[in-house]
Design a protein around this nucleic acid. Sequence first.
RNA 1: GCCGGAGUGGCGGAAUUGGUAGACGCAAGGGACUUAAAAUCCCUCGGAACUUAGUUCCGUGACGGUUCGAGUCCGUCCUUCGGCACCA
Length: 865
Amino acid sequence: MTLEERYNPQSVELKWQKYWAEKGLYRTDMDAAREKFYCLEMFPYPSGKIHMGHVRNYAIGDVIARWKSMRGYNVLHPMGWDAFGLPAENAAIKQGVHPAQWTYENIGYMKQQLQRMGLSYDWDREVATCSPEYYRWNQWFFLKMLERNLAYKRSSFVNWCQSCTTVLANEQVINGKCWRCDSEVIQKELEQWFFRITHYAEELLEGCEKLTGWPENVVAMQKNWIGKSEGVEMDFSVDGQEEKIRIFTTRPDTLWGATFVCIAPGHFLSEKLVADKEKLNAVKAKYGEMEEKEGLFTGHYAVNPMNNEKIPIYVANFVLMEYGTGAIMSVPAHDQRDFEFAKKYNLPIRVVIAPENDAGNGRSGETVKSPGLRVSGSPGHSLTEAYEGEGILVNSGKFNGMRSEVAKKEIGIFIEEKGLGRRVINYKLRDWGISRQRYWGTPIPVVYCRKCGIVPVDDKDLPVVLPEDVKFTGKGGSPLLDSEDFLRTGCPRCGGEARRETDTMDTFVDSSWYFLRYCSKKDEDALDKDNIAYWMPVDQYIGGVEHAVLHLLYSRFFTRVIRDIGILDFDEPFTNLLTQGMVCMETLKCPEHGWLFPEEAKDEKCVQCGREIARGRVEKMSKSKKNVVDPDHLIDRYGADTSRLFSLFAAPPEKDLEWADKGVEGAYRFLNRMWGIVYKNRDVLRVMRDRLEYTDSSRVTDHALRLLRKTHQTIKRVSTDIEREYHFNTAIAGLMELVNELSAFQPQSDEDRAVLKHSIETALLLLSPFSPHIAEELWEAMGNEPSIFGQKWPQWDEETAREEEIELVIQVNGKVRSKVMVPHGLADEEIKQRTMNEPRIKEILGDKTIRKIFVVKGKLVNIVM
RNA sequence: GCCGGAGUGGCGGAAUUGGUAGACGCAAGGGACUUAAAAUCCCUCGGAACUUAGUUCCGUGACGGUUCGAGUCCGUCCUUCGGCACCA
């Protein structure tokens, strides 16, 4: 074939995309003889177009997949669509398009965009979670979980987004706002379906220890979210009544400092103990508000079982009903919240923990009545805040003098022995509310029968398919409520009339197991055990850190549920996780027109009004701030290879990437140089038949030997940089160095030409995972059979890669004073000798005494005077 | 407040276990080619000083410490970005 003089990314890329598709190069099959590698990128929501975050995410994944494949692994690299969700339904309301049509059109466009990027996906395994073939398995899992009591329905206060008119899970509320539309979330009481994720709380927490291939911050966030705490539960009886208040505390060591008890407004006793319902309702109304602590004295007293002291009972807005027992003992001296409350309501504050260095200074910790907070024994010393640290117990009966860490355990044991309470473990993690009052999701497969109550749909009747003939009015309430055909059904148990559940599932259910679906092809059994056993777990998962809790926690939960159902036999779905940084860009603002797209600014001026623009902070690319680059434009202009290369070169994958148009030009220049080298040498290269035998290097010039050495050094560098933490940016920098040497190289002999050919071919192999099309094109242009991806990853030879001489750095008292070239493997004595013979060093040393000489082999000498 | 990152030239970023700070790229400046421009190629490029072929000093957020030697380890602090936040 003939090679064009000029690099034309468009024609090259389309040519090879077609070739790869026709040959089915990325189709994968199970092969027990080969070691597998499952490389997965988080699948996208089909919003319409891909953005630069996707480009980066998929470029990273593609390099890993192609690289592992060239290293001999049987690589699974699938892609699909997280296709259920609100935007489709909102589009239906606004534009009158059916969500299915809207979604599938978006998928069509985005798929073409991904193909244009030259990604090595096995499209035979593509999934769209909105297809009944997919979501029937959501329903199947639901039924299995119902059987195992892992799915249940209950009434509860839920997070309700008024704009999306649906419920949100705790994980989906961000600073009191909806994670999707950012509008205020209110509390509403509703009947909801839940998944009992708390059943696995301990296991999910313990499993964190096994996540050694995950970023530490993500593991920390998971642990934090599960939020385990150990403490005791014990009953405080209500004075003069039968009732008891069960409290939970992690600080049993402060029990003697409890000066009042608080119960949540929703606590069952609050109604019983408070006579004035109006006042109670006022506190209830303030529940969950963080600005100010509000309380109401019930008029009743509780008895502290440790010292039989009577302490007042309050209803307090800051006490959570959902955590612990909904009631607490308050120790204002040692808990900041209780302290603030005590201050406001003039309650006593009693010190029972003395900071260790203060212990024994006579502070008795006696009760102080006034809110002036004077602690007796230290005149003028008044508490301004609670002391929450560790210390020595005071004023705590027989536990006085004990260290608080010890006392926590001892008092816990004491309480159990006396039958006053028990040691318990609490988690912040709540059950996962999955009901959504929207149309575009998986129907929950149960029916309501007048006789039988809630009845699950039979397995054989799955999937429960979404009806198509529904109206999207946007008036709130699920559109499913209007579909008579859908609603009316028979009871699977008694055959009588029944009504279908109209709630659909949270879309996070869909993404909690999609990685298992990919293990089998479209026409195969969705949960084929052999396929799953072969491919799972995912060896490398790549996605944004925004899913650090939500999706990743749900997936870990689902994996355990499916394990317990008996379909798989491992615990963790993702062995290694890479959370890529955000793609950021500078924001531009016009004083008149507000945020500007990059193309709306020319020469620091707004193209509309000519006013001077302000350059703002570098922020995550977002449509609202208009600091975006359209991947379509980018690929039209530079091609996929350049776009991929730059997004990998500009920063290591886990760090944020600052987009710079000029940087893209640099990547483009580099590929042009590569092209130019092959073009310049095209005739020579095609003639050369085979590679040089390195054993006979006598006729190779020094110049060529250096190139050969550099080539092997580069193989080593690129390989180890990819291997070690996927540092593609330094790998590419290494490749650039090699290409710089290649452009300068002038072959003098046939042997030189053989070296050149070997070196160029190596460069192309090393480049191929990053910029696959150009590598493929130039590989072919050199007279090789396609595809380059059928080739093995090159191996370096240590001997060839080694420098003949090393540059020895000579330091005097730790400062670099000279450098000399020395051969390899000199003995320390010899090195010292040569160092001393350096004129420059002689000059510096003069006749001063040398105290010591440090030699770092192959690198450096430090003379200490 | 708690937990976790990060701070290195004009900029993005290198520096594998404590051993030459600034690889590679961008921008900038100078030169070659060209009628000219673009493209391409070559050179310079942390700061300061001096007796300027070179040499010395300073320099990795700040201040201390350990060490023959610290961007890297330890301590204290500052700034900044994420996450969690009345979870008892």
